[in-house]
Design a protein around this nucleic acid. Sequence first.
DNA 1: ATAGGGTTAG
Length: 714
Amino acid sequence: MAATARSLLDRLIQHAVGPKRTSPAATSASTIIRHLDSGDLRKAIATLSSSASPFPDNVYASLLHLCSSRRSLVDVRRVESHLVAFSPSSSPSIFLLNRTIVTYARCGSPADARELFDEMPTRDGGTWNAMISAYALSDCPNEAVSLFSRMNSAGIRPKDVTLASVLGCCADLLASFLARQIHCLILKYGYLPNVILDTSVVDVYGKCLEMNDARKMFDLILHPNEISWNVIVRRYLEAGSAGEAMLMFFQMIREGVKPLSFTVSNTLKACSKVLALKEGNQIHAYLLKTGFEGDNVVGCSLMDVYAKCGVVDDARQLFDQLPCKDVVSWTSMISGYVACGRVDEAEKIFEEMPERNVISWNALLAGYIRFFCWDKASDFFCRMWRETGKLDLVSLGLQLNACAGISDLDRGKQIHGFAYRHNWESDKFFRNQLVDMYAKCGNLRNAEISFSIMADQRDTVSWNSLISGYIRYGRSEETLVALSEMQRETIPNEFTFTTILAACANIFMLDVGKQIHAFMVRNGFQLNAIVRGALVDMYSKCRLIEYAIKIFEEESTRDLILWNTIILGCAYNGRGEQSLDLFEEMKKEVAADNVTFIGVLLACVSQGYVDLGRRYFDSMSNEYGIIPRIEHYECMIELLGKYGWMVELEDFIQRLPFEPTIPMWIRIFDCCREHGNIRLGERAAKFINESNPLTPVQFEIIPRAGHHMPCSSG
DNA sequence: ATAGGGTTAG
């Protein structure tokens, strides 16, 4: 390169002649500063490279500064080589080299930083500090910690900032034992009290979920500043102690510290987590008094509290009053409506919003998924791709849920492939969704493959999805083996137990079912409506209907499925009367669906209420707008046939909107033999024999011991 | 060290 050749020449001349009074370096220094001031890094570097003499330290420092904000690794390398090559005393300022180390890290190359560190003939304390910060910045906490321990054994005193960054690394590594040692060092070097270090100690204990220690440290801080308060609130929130987070916030206010908006927002997140509407309102009042109205961060969190607590209209009011709405506030409003199940209003907001990003699209997509609008979700997903050309792993994961919901294996595979091509498929959430999609679509082999690929990331959710796949596709026996394998790797939760209970119900494993029930009670699991549903189902299938009824009665929020389970359970256990009573009670709380009517009709079968059953059957379409399915027709055939209403049965068959199935014909055939309906019985025989000519049946009426009695009446 | 979207059950 010409510039390099000229620089070399300049340097030779300079050596031969000696520095002049007005050296060219002085003029190029001001040129470089001028370029840096106007933000022209390229020209500044060009000027630097064309000069073969050293510059004052502040020129290099300013160059490094701009390199780091431009993240330009190649330019840092140029600055470093100039610095090393032309330094007057053949060893450049250690201070500048330390700066260079950090700059390399900021430009994304801890390797360059380490190379420079290793090559430096003399280092000072700052060099170690720089290299440790460089590792911390580059997300290499292990390297940072081990370098710190080398530094410590070399007897070099760390600066407070170094200690702070090493503490941060301990947090990344969740290494509370290291954090404790560093805490001791801080005390030993006498750095305390120092709000920044104190707060870092609180932060590291909190991140390691050692909340008692975090709090102890916090209480020792003489004058916690707003950042210290922010840290303790946030740590409580993330450790799952929403109540403590709220208490700390109120204490902060009492002590007269004005919170950062992040602190307010974190406290509000705590409120929405535990549905603390009252506290949310109090904070709202405080915010109005202290002038937070225009703050979007705070506004969005408050909207979230209102939406989660079911007063979405308050959220809407807040939204309407926001002085300058941005994408985030619009998106918050969408998820607010989604949280309350008002998807149509979420749609309206979505259509009205002036600009959208991936997250806004995902918010509405999540709404469709949450309320089982799978086709709508798929259409929306396609529209998103068509209109924006953008998707991310959350959109794909949601779409996988839709595929699982409608058992669309082909589309699921396409999504899998798309994620694979974008190198997105290593995400744990996404992988769990993949396992679930394959399991729900019945492709257990692919579910197992996806499951084994994520070996090191597997959690309770992954196991739950796989196990529920086994049960759904008739492999209930395998669940116990899977459960014990699971326990070697992770801890089962109520989802797991619910699934295992379903297996127990399927294959009548009463003992295991009882054990799980007892285990949950002993270990303080709260039995929600879903767990109770599984217990009710297990006990009623295993013929312990009394247990089932007791568990049902202990639940206060009874949804459709729970009602259906107990109604079916009673009918199945021959307690038709009780089923029908429960059905009458149910109607006051929730709307019946087609499953309910299977239970109701079976109850009539068990009690011999033929006429009542016919009326219920007619009411399905007349009153409830529920179209009878094959199961309901089967129940009616059973009801009429079992009790010998042969005229009505023949009429019913005549009016069927479809040809009876072979199992139906077989049941009709048997009833006709028992109750003596030759015409229908021979018709049934004809259909059965057509479907299976190898073992034909012959119709004949079973002779009765006593007199023959037609049971049919009007 | 910066708001908004995502996983499993009857």
